[in-house]
Amino acid sequence: MLPQNKLQDVFFTALMAFVMVYAMICYNISLNVGGLKNFVFLAAFSEILIMWPIAVIVELLIVGKLSKILAFRFVTPGKDSPIMLILAISSMSVCLMCPIMSFAATILFKNAGSEFIAVWLQTTAFNFPVALFWQLFFAGPLVRNVFGLIMKKIGKQ
């Protein structure tokens, strides 16, 4: 199920952003420490307090609308199957969010100094395939199912 109104859109966005941001923070910390270790799962919560609100705001104000505009250049609502619409919008969202969130992470956590552009580009390049894979195969289906269950439960009350 997908959001049907603005309140649902904000809730869905917050849930999706949390799942995506948490996973990407865990991934980036793992890169920095030489691999995934148990402490990473807790350490990610210190960064998520900063990155999650950024992701929600960027998605709600910019990326949500723009990703649909871009996706609808490839797919047509009412003509193409719903899964194709979801995959197109999700893919365009990652194409936009990954460089933006990598930019924020580079500013806030990378201490890049005079190598800022190079560090940002490298961070984006490392993050993009993981973000796309995570979104299309795990976060997207998980969040849509959880969101659908919550909306169904709320609707029965």
Rank of each mutant, 00 (worst) to 15 (best):
M1V: 05
M1K: 03
P3E: 02
Q4W: 07
D9I: 01
V10Y: 07
F12M: 08
T13R: 04
T13I: 00
A17F: 12
V19Y: 09
M20E: 02
M20S: 04
V21N: 09
V21T: 14
I25S: 01
I25F: 01
I25W: 07
C26I: 12
Y27P: 01
I29Q: 11
S30C: 08
S30I: 04
N32E: 10
V33F: 12
G35H: 11
G35R: 14
L36F: 15
K37Y: 06
K37M: 11
N38F: 13
F41T: 06
L42P: 00
S46R: 00
L49V: 02
I50R: 10
I50N: 07
M51F: 15
M51R: 00
M51I: 11
W52F: 02
A55N: 05
A55P: 00
V58T: 10
L61V: 11
I62M: 06
G64W: 03
G64N: 07
L66N: 06
L66K: 08
K68V: 13
K68C: 11
I69H: 03
L70G: 14
A71W: 01
A71Y: 03
F72W: 11
R73D: 03
V75Y: 03
T76E: 09
G78Q: 06
K79D: 05
D80C: 05
D80T: 13
S81A: 14
P82F: 04
M84V: 02
L85R: 05
L85M: 08
L87N: 01
A88H: 07
A88C: 05
I89C: 13
S91I: 14
M92F: 14
I100A: 14
I100C: 14
I100R: 02
M101G: 09
A105R: 13
T106S: 12
L108Q: 04
F109L: 09
F109A: 10
N111K: 10
S114P: 06
E115A: 08
E115P: 01
F116G: 07
I117P: 00
A118H: 11
V119D: 03
V119C: 01
W120I: 13
L121V: 09
L121K: 07
T123C: 06
T124V: 00
A125K: 14
N127P: 06
N127W: 05
N127F: 02
F128Y: 14
P129K: 08
P129D: 13
V130S: 02
V130D: 01
A131H: 04
L132W: 12
L136I: 15
F137Y: 03
F137L: 15
F138I: 14
G140H: 10
R144N: 05
N145M: 07
V146I: 15
G148F: 13
L149A: 15
L149N: 08
I150V: 15
M151G: 04
M151D: 12
K152M: 06
K153R: 14
I154E: 04
I154L: 11
K156L: 05
Q157T: 06
Q157C: 04
